[in-house]
Lab assay of single mutants.
Amino acid sequence: SRYQRVDEALPPNWEARIDSHGRIFYVDHVNRTTTWQRPTAPPAP
């Protein structure tokens, strides 16, 4: 859903941030990219 819980676990090396307008975006520290779409953790084997 559009309103996912912010405290749900993100994949490793990802961080949720809030911009100056109060919107949540996500930072990938490995690839040094950002996205508005919440990343999903790969399925557990």
Rank of each mutant, 00 (worst) to 15 (best):
F25Y: 13
A41N: 12
V30P: 04
G22C: 00
H21I: 03
T34N: 07
I18V: 12
P39E: 02
P11T: 03
L10S: 02
R2Y: 02
V6M: 15
V30K: 10
A44P: 06
A41L: 09
P12V: 06
R38P: 08
V6N: 09
Y26P: 01
R38A: 06
Y3M: 14
A16I: 00
Y3C: 12
Q4R: 09
Q4W: 07
R2K: 15
W36C: 07
H29F: 01
W36T: 08
Q4A: 08
W36N: 12
T34F: 01
R38K: 13
S20W: 03
V27S: 04
E15Y: 00
A9W: 07
S20E: 14
Y3P: 13
A16V: 03
P43Q: 09
N31A: 09
Y3S: 13
P43Y: 04
P42E: 11
V6H: 15
P42T: 08
A16D: 01
T34Y: 03
Q37V: 14
R38G: 02
V6Q: 15
H21Y: 05
P12E: 15
H21K: 06
D19K: 00
A44R: 11
A41M: 12
A44K: 13
P39W: 00
S1T: 15
H21D: 12
D7V: 02
G22H: 05
P11Y: 02
A9I: 09
P39V: 00
H21R: 07
I24W: 05
P43E: 11
A41T: 12
A44F: 03
I24M: 10
D7I: 01
R2I: 11
R23Y: 02
T33S: 12
R5L: 10
D7M: 04
V27Q: 06
D19G: 05
D28S: 02
F25Q: 05
T34I: 01
I18W: 07
H29L: 11
D7W: 03
R32V: 03
P39M: 01
H29G: 07
N31K: 11
R2E: 14
I18T: 15
E15R: 03
L10W: 01
L10I: 07
D19P: 00
I18S: 13
Q4M: 12
W14C: 02
A44T: 12
N13T: 05
R38W: 01
A41R: 10
V6E: 13
R32S: 12
I18D: 06
H21W: 07
N13A: 06
R2Q: 15
E8N: 10
T33R: 11
Y26H: 02
Y3K: 11
P11E: 03
R2W: 03
R17M: 14
P39A: 01
Y26R: 01
A44I: 14
S1W: 09
Y26N: 00
N13E: 06
P45Q: 14
Y3D: 15
T34E: 08
N13Y: 12
P39K: 01
R2L: 05
A9S: 13
A44Y: 05
H21M: 12
P45R: 12
I24G: 02
Q37K: 12
P42G: 09
P11D: 03
Y3G: 07
S20H: 12
P12I: 11
N13R: 06
V27L: 11
I24E: 08
S20D: 15
Q37D: 02
Q37H: 15
R23P: 01
Q4L: 14
T40P: 13
V27G: 02
T35P: 00
F25P: 02
T34D: 05
I24Y: 06
P43A: 11
S20G: 12
T34H: 09
Y3A: 07
Q37N: 15
Y26C: 00
A41W: 09
P45S: 13
P11V: 02
E15H: 04
A41G: 10
S1Y: 15
D28Y: 01
D28K: 01
N31P: 01
V30Q: 03
F25S: 07
R5E: 15
N13G: 12
I18M: 14
I24P: 09
P43M: 09
R5T: 15
A9K: 15
W14T: 02
D28Q: 00
F25D: 01
D28W: 00
S1V: 13
P42D: 08
Y3L: 12
R17T: 02
S1F: 14
T40W: 06
N31F: 03
N31D: 04
G22F: 01
P12F: 01
Q4D: 12
S1L: 14
P42C: 05
V6C: 02
